[in-house]
Nucleic acid binder design. Structure first.
Lengths: 220, 220, 220, 220
DNA sequence: AATGAATGAGGGTTCATTCAT
DNA sequence: TATGAATGAACCCTCATTCAT
């Protein structure tokens, strides 16, 4: 009915801007031919500013420089904007994590790398972080995500822990599932606090101390 | 403007039902004379079910068994319902934590107790947990809470960690502030996962394994 | 069903306070045993301040120092308050006009007296004036009043004009009905302007110049 | 905020229908392409019928043949409808008065012309007259208008009177300001009575007798 | 008579979504 | 594709009125 590329469009076709800049600043850099991306990035900014429920589709359209109706040519509805932000981000994060992990053998290094990537991704774009930490916590989204993309990310952590146990580095008495949650929760809290602190410090700097506590906590 | 006890009413006067039952089931036990509490407990149930933004004040009123307008005799507006849920719960949690901690000397025991109390409070009432984990994550609330009641709770954890360092039990290289966030984040994630798992296990059982990792992580 | 004295209670039983003070200030003078009057005077103040539609019955009750429900023991409903203000005032104004006119023979003097009484009544109580000039203009009230009490007042003016014509003082070519409206309209406009000027001058002082124009306008 | 032409749209661009027909009947003549005007004319009808406070915005929308929300595309809120009715009408009335007066030299003729225009404008559209005589008497509007557009109209009358005095036609002992109020009040009362009489006579016919009394009242 | 807590109908306004152009 | 005017369902909150005490 409505040619909506939001869910099936491969991230690679999105012509994703440089990973070294905040996502939501890239758009200001020059003419963005891809309206799908313009709208998505506008949604991140707007949702971060006002919250999902307090944002109007018209706000997103205005921020993206398109007409209200145009939003509906690229996204099924308002909710689809939020879901697409998640997919747009997580797809790439997973891809990148997969690549980076293959270059590492040590479970310790893998875990540190995962933590660094997590905090780097969020720390690079405060708006994106806000959307992930705040707006995507709506139960309906959380339930959806916990059984999908996010569980893949979780799997990386758990697998690294299991490898650590098999390698005799980590205590076998520890439940890898629980340990993965501990690490994820700790990192998640770092992001939340960083947002609330209004970016007074560098989020990536938190990777080391957090992983330090975690690895000491699970080591033999 | 209206006689709204929500913010100043001492929790002790609220005739709070038994701590061993989920808050939101107590109301079904019999006639509740306290309309303020009836409405608040109804709001927890309704917000947990539909989310704050998807809930209508009329839903809360209906669930509480009062007329729509009655809600506004006890609460300033819809948002006040959410804030009052937070205050209603956190006030008691802080009070309880304060009492329980005075009976303990060991930093390890204090930290375990805090974790147990946290998970016990949330694990006792799934609806309350949902409201705390999902609805109160709205940025406007988080900012408000992080500088108020919730910071008191954080202080408990940080203080225990500092005491552990002074007692020579914990590594001094560790930043107590960061460590507190790690523990809080880990516990928070346990609650979130418990909700998503639909109560398949006992949340309180997570206190030991989480604290085990954490204490090993910070110990000398 | 409801013992409402508002419409049939003779003004003489109301123990009307001194005519030399604004109605709405009398109440502050001392204990008012008559609740009917307390509420009515409060209504004048409140309606003058906020307008009828923007005033709440609760505002009137509070200003009168009674409970909300008490208002309904003395007045059928909110609208009855407004109607009663009209009757309460006009009954006395008519009575007073009737008395004062009997002492005068000259049509000129009668007309001046009517004008003076009119402006004196309104000029004595700004709140009352506001209610009469603004709130009672609602069409439903105007239609009701134009066929009742107010027409009696009109009759006084018209009769005086007719007497002036019969006495050979006023032009017979003039329609007494229209002339009465001209005078009434002129006086009415004085009151309205006085309210808008925020009482910068004495309303009664307008009687002479207005009547001067009018009498010259109709004289032979 | 919204593209609301109500306040700045020149009356000339509004494609105002023939001055010889009641404003509120014109719309029934055919398809009205101007939604702004459709809604404004509907508001006049609806407010005249039920009064401003008893009218719902939905009533206006329905009468105008548009959706409820459409009203808010052209008017800021319900109150703006009322204010716009005033501006819509008074702007043209002033313009017309200005034009007509320039063709006249005699103060007497000017005053008669102003009276005729006044009664003609109101007598042409009973609904408009009702809104002006009843709804726009709300204190908040009166205060606003008395210091704006309406004072221009007043100025016309006062200036004519002063010219009459300077020409030696009118008594110099008369205060032009007060005299202007007398005339305005008299005309205003004619309109009010005409409404209450339910159009039993032609309002414009009142111009001569009223002006006759007035001019005789002020003449030397 | 007096109270004031409780009621619940009612309405102004918003905004996601549609569709004619 | 793109627009943005138009739609109309939805909802928070107010407040006149009632009635048990």
């Amino acid at each position: 009915m409505n040619n909506r590329p939001s869910l099936n469009k491969p991230i690679s076709q999105v012509n994703r801007p440089s990973l070294n800049k905040p996502l939501t600043e890239v758009i200001a850099a020059g003419p963005t031919p891809d309206k799908y991306e313009s709208i998505l990035l506008a949604a991140i900014r707007v949702f971060a500013r006002n919250g999902f429920f307090n944002s109007k589709v018209a706000d997103v359209a205005k921020d993206a420089g398109v007409a209200d109706g145009t939003v509906y040519l690229y996204f099924k509805n308002k909710e689809d904007l939020l879901i697409s932000i998640f997919n747009y981000t997580i797809d790439e994060a997973i891809e990148r994590a997969r690549k980076e992990l293959t270059t590492l053998d040590s479970p310790n290094e893998k875990i540190l790398k995962l933590a660094a990537l997590h905090l780097d991704l969020m720390g690079r774009d405060e708006n994106l972080a806000k959307v992930f930490q705040v707006e995507l916590r709506q139960l309906k989204f959380m339930e959806q995500f916990s059984t999908s993309k996010l569980s893949i990310y979780f799997e990386f952590i758990r697998t690294a822990i299991e490898q650590g146990q098999q390698a005799g580095l980590f205590r076998t008495g520890i439940n890898p599932q629980i340990a993965a949650k501990v690490l994820y929760g700790a990192l998640d809290e770092m992001v939340t606090n960083w947002i609330l602190s209004r970016k007074e410090y560098n989020l990536s700097d938190m990777a080391d101390p957090v992983v330090d506590i975690f690895l000491n906590g699970v080591k033999k």
